[in-house]
Design a protein around this nucleic acid. Structure first.
Ligand SMILES: [Zn+2]
Ligand SMILES: [Zn+2]
Ligand SMILES: [Zn+2]
Ligand SMILES: [Zn+2]
Lengths: 147, 147
DNA sequence: AAAGATATCGAGATCCGATCGCAAGAAACG
DNA sequence: CGTTTCTTGCGATCGGATCTCGATATCTTT
């Protein structure tokens, strides 16, 4: 979901009309590599086209989620944040001081989850692993000794 | 947090007044081993003492959370659910068909999380691992073959 | 036990993120 | 173009959670 062309094609594929608001919103989403919430998306959208309503961003985002284009996260029970569905699954480190998100993958953790679910007689439908972190602040001591 | 005695003692320790509503709410919590939400707690509380308001349950529960007595979970972005802080940390399998919760521990997953955070220059403040599952339904075939 | 200081209560108002209903406007299609 | 159906903007509404407020109840001090 990147160029003007692709967005139109995507809409057609999804059976959605190609409208002005949609073009802008989808462009903004495609250009965002952080994990913005709807209000932030709306901020970016309105900078391009001031008449677009918040409700429209909400609607577009839920639509794209239904269609499997977007993934929705609710880190720390705040406003939901979105990202385009990645090629490969990943989980998140959330910096609680800045709100920044770092992505990571761990095949081992994924495998262990499968194992645990199976041991309890379940199959996994989805999961959520969020690690809330803060930066290690280097002390004089730890800088010297290396650990 | 179990007997009448203990509840009074706990309140005193926390600097809270021992009130009728508090006694009932804390008793209900201490007798719940599932992960009830506030509405469910209120249902159980009202069965004992019909005059107690929902807001009071909300207040008591947030108070106990602040004081480190309760843990709050938001599985699947629905109503928050509570449990008394366990001796040892655990994570949860949530049966999406019934809402039932199964607890599990995995020292390995915990260790891998630490490792990942450290590799990115972070220390873990908290984390959330929720696995949404459904029961494996045994087919005639799988029962025979063992897989 | 009575009084004063203050924490807590119930009830309803309010908050906030998200969704909905509706009338007006715009895309698609022939 | 005209018709049909989808979208949009706006304000109302929803649901979970919190807050406000006057009335009570608990604790402390006599
Ligand atoms: Zn994962
Ligand atoms: Zn991500
Ligand atoms: Zn854990
Ligand atoms: Zn638990």
């Amino acid at each position: 979901m990147s160029s003007e062309q692709t967005i139109a094609a995507l809409c057609r594929k999804l059976g959605l009309r190609i409208t002005g608001p949609r073009r802008v919103i989808m462009r903004v989403i495609s250009e965002s590599s952080d994990h913005p919430d709807v209000v932030e998306l709306h901020r970016r959208v309105v900078a391009i086209e001031p008449t677009i309503a918040l409700a429209t961003v909400y609607r577009t985002v839920s639509l794209l989620r239904e269609k499997g284009i977007l993934e929705r996260h609710t880190f720390g029970d705040r406003r939901a944040r979105y990202e385009t569905v990645p090629r490969e699954h990943h989980d998140h480190l959330i910096n609680i001081e800045t709100g920044d998100v770092v992505e990571f993958q761990s095949a081992e953790i994924e495998r262990l989850q499968e194992e645990i679910a199976r041991q309890h007689g379940f199959t996994i439908i989805s999961h959520r692993l969020e690690i809330y972190v803060k930066p290690i602040q280097k002390t004089r001591r730890s800088r010297q000794s290396g650990e």
